[in-house]
Computed example of a mutant assay.
Amino acid sequence: MPTITRIANEFLAVEISSLGAEMQSATTRDGAGWLWNGDAAFWTGRSPVLFPIVGKAPDDTLLIDGAPYPMAQHGFARRREFTLDDAAATACRYVLEASDETRAAYPFDFRLAVAHSLDGPALTVAAEVENRGETPMPFGCGFHPAFRWPLPGAQGKPHAVILDNAGEPERQPLEKGLLSQDRTTSPFQAGRLTLAQDLFEDDALVFPEGAGNGLTYAAEGGPSLTFHFENLPNLALWTKPGAPFLCVEPWHGTAALYEGPHELKDRPYTTLLGPGEHTRFAFTVIFPT
Results as ranks from 00 to 15, higher is better:
Glu128Tyr: 00
Ile7Ser: 06
Ala256Val: 02
Thr124Ala: 08
Asp198Ile: 01
Lys240Leu: 14
Gly142Asp: 01
Asp100Val: 00
Ala89Arg: 11
Pro150Tyr: 11
Glu277Arg: 12
Pro288Ser: 10
Gly167Thr: 09
Ala218Val: 05
Val206His: 00
Glu128Ile: 07
Arg46Ala: 10
Phe139Cys: 05
Ala41His: 14
Lys265Ala: 15
Arg192Ile: 07
Glu22Trp: 03
Gly120Lys: 06
Gly212Asp: 04
Leu96Ile: 10
Ala40His: 07
Gln24His: 01
Pro152Ile: 08
Ala127Gln: 14
Ala218Arg: 03
Gln172Ile: 02
Val95Pro: 02
Leu84Gly: 04
Tyr106Phe: 15
Phe207Asn: 07
Arg103Asp: 09
Ala104Asp: 09
Asn9Leu: 05
Leu163Cys: 03
Asn9Val: 05
Ile64Leu: 11
Arg111Ala: 12
Thr102Gln: 02
Lys157Trp: 01
Leu273Arg: 11
Phe283Ser: 02
Ala113Glu: 14
Ala127Tyr: 06
Phe287Met: 03
Gly260Thr: 10
Arg171Ile: 13
Glu128Gly: 11
Asn37Pro: 02
Phe200Ile: 11
Leu193Thr: 04
Gly45His: 12
Ser47Ile: 01
Thr61Val: 15
Asn231Arg: 12
Pro244Arg: 12
Pro187Lys: 08
Val285Tyr: 05
Ala166Ser: 14
Glu130Asp: 10
Gly274Glu: 15
Arg29Asp: 06
